Measured scan of single mutants.
Amino acid sequence: MTFKLIINGKTLKGETTTEAVDAATAEKVFKQYANDNGLDGEWTYDDATKTFTITE
């Protein structure tokens, strides 16, 4: 399955995708991506669209 991450950061904005077997796996990938890029914010997830959002 394809999951999307929408980034609404103070300095970084955009989106990225990952292929994962489930939402929990995708969340780990996206949280590592956010950590690697210095993002810290509030996370939301929409199961209907398989989309995570981080807002700083």
Rank of each mutant, 00 (worst) to 15 (best):
residue 27 E to R: 08
residue 14 G to M: 15
residue 54 I to P: 01
residue 41 G to E: 01
residue 51 T to V: 07
residue 34 A to E: 02
residue 40 D to H: 14
residue 32 Q to I: 11
residue 25 T to S: 13
residue 43 W to S: 01
residue 6 I to T: 05
residue 28 K to G: 09
residue 30 F to A: 01
residue 43 W to V: 03
residue 41 G to Y: 04
residue 39 L to D: 02
residue 45 Y to M: 02
residue 32 Q to T: 12
residue 48 A to L: 12
residue 51 T to N: 03
residue 37 N to P: 01
residue 24 A to S: 07
residue 5 L to M: 05
residue 12 L to R: 07
residue 6 I to R: 06
residue 29 V to Q: 09
residue 5 L to E: 00
residue 2 T to W: 15
residue 34 A to P: 01
residue 30 F to T: 00
residue 29 V to D: 05
residue 11 T to F: 14
residue 1 M to Y: 15
residue 56 E to D: 08
residue 8 N to C: 08
residue 29 V to L: 14
residue 32 Q to Y: 04
residue 45 Y to Q: 01
residue 31 K to P: 00
residue 20 A to G: 04
residue 41 G to S: 02
residue 9 G to Q: 07
residue 9 G to W: 08
residue 16 T to E: 08
residue 56 E to G: 05
residue 52 F to K: 00
residue 28 K to D: 06
residue 43 W to C: 03
residue 54 I to Q: 02
residue 23 A to W: 10
residue 27 E to C: 10
residue 42 E to V: 14
residue 7 I to Q: 02
residue 14 G to S: 14
residue 44 T to M: 07
residue 13 K to C: 09
residue 28 K to N: 09
residue 43 W to E: 00
residue 31 K to F: 06
residue 11 T to H: 15
residue 52 F to A: 01
residue 55 T to H: 08
residue 27 E to Q: 11
residue 54 I to A: 02
residue 2 T to L: 13
residue 7 I to E: 02
residue 46 D to P: 00
residue 17 T to A: 08
residue 14 G to W: 15
residue 31 K to H: 08
residue 24 A to P: 07
residue 28 K to E: 10
residue 47 D to E: 13
residue 2 T to R: 12
residue 54 I to L: 14
residue 27 E to M: 11
residue 30 F to M: 02
residue 56 E to W: 12
residue 44 T to H: 11
residue 55 T to R: 06
residue 12 L to K: 08
residue 40 D to L: 15
residue 11 T to K: 14
residue 52 F to Q: 00
residue 35 N to M: 15
residue 31 K to Y: 06
residue 10 K to D: 07
residue 28 K to V: 10
residue 5 L to P: 00
residue 25 T to C: 06
residue 53 T to D: 02
residue 39 L to Q: 03
residue 7 I to D: 01
residue 18 T to A: 07
residue 7 I to A: 04
residue 34 A to M: 06
residue 15 E to S: 12
residue 5 L to I: 03
residue 19 E to S: 10
residue 50 K to E: 03
residue 33 Y to P: 00
residue 38 G to D: 09
residue 5 L to A: 02
residue 50 K to L: 10
residue 34 A to H: 01
residue 4 K to M: 09
residue 45 Y to I: 02
residue 56 E to Q: 09
residue 45 Y to D: 00
residue 55 T to I: 07
residue 33 Y to Q: 03
residue 15 E to Y: 14
residue 17 T to H: 08
residue 18 T to W: 06
residue 52 F to D: 00
residue 50 K to Y: 11
residue 20 A to C: 07
residue 38 G to S: 09
residue 41 G to L: 02
residue 45 Y to L: 02
residue 48 A to P: 10
residue 42 E to A: 09
residue 31 K to R: 14
residue 31 K to Q: 08
residue 26 A to S: 02
residue 40 D to N: 12
residue 50 K to H: 12
residue 30 F to D: 00
residue 47 D to V: 10
residue 35 N to R: 15
residue 46 D to W: 04
residue 22 D to R: 03
residue 6 I to H: 05
residue 32 Q to K: 15
residue 56 E to K: 04
residue 4 K to H: 13
residue 11 T to C: 09
residue 11 T to A: 09
residue 41 G to V: 03
residue 5 L to F: 09
residue 52 F to P: 00
residue 9 G to C: 10
residue 14 G to P: 06
residue 56 E to L: 12
residue 21 V to Q: 13
residue 46 D to F: 04
residue 41 G to R: 01
residue 40 D to E: 15
residue 5 L to R: 00
residue 42 E to Q: 11
residue 21 V to S: 12
residue 2 T to M: 13
residue 35 N to F: 15
residue 19 E to F: 13
residue 50 K to T: 04
residue 22 D to V: 03
residue 1 M to D: 10
residue 43 W to H: 01
residue 29 V to A: 07
residue 11 T to Q: 15
residue 9 G to D: 04
residue 48 A to N: 13
residue 8 N to Y: 14
residue 50 K to A: 07
residue 13 K to V: 12
residue 44 T to A: 10
residue 22 D to S: 06
residue 28 K to F: 12
residue 25 T to D: 14
residue 40 D to P: 04
residue 1 M to N: 11
residue 44 T to I: 08
residue 16 T to P: 03
residue 14 G to V: 15
residue 31 K to D: 02
residue 19 E to D: 10
residue 42 E to C: 08
residue 29 V to P: 01
residue 43 W to K: 00
residue 18 T to K: 04
residue 2 T to S: 06
residue 8 N to K: 12
residue 41 G to C: 03
residue 11 T to S: 08
residue 9 G to P: 03
residue 34 A to R: 02
residue 40 D to K: 14
residue 32 Q to E: 08
residue 23 A to F: 13
residue 33 Y to W: 15
residue 3 F to S: 00
residue 47 D to F: 09
residue 32 Q to F: 05
residue 8 N to S: 12
residue 46 D to R: 03
residue 37 N to K: 14
residue 9 G to N: 06
residue 2 T to N: 09
residue 2 T to A: 07
residue 5 L to W: 03
residue 17 T to M: 12
residue 56 E to F: 11
residue 26 A to Q: 01
residue 54 I to D: 00
residue 5 L to N: 01
residue 20 A to K: 03
residue 22 D to P: 01
residue 4 K to L: 08
residue 10 K to V: 13
residue 49 T to D: 06
residue 50 K to W: 06
residue 28 K to Y: 11
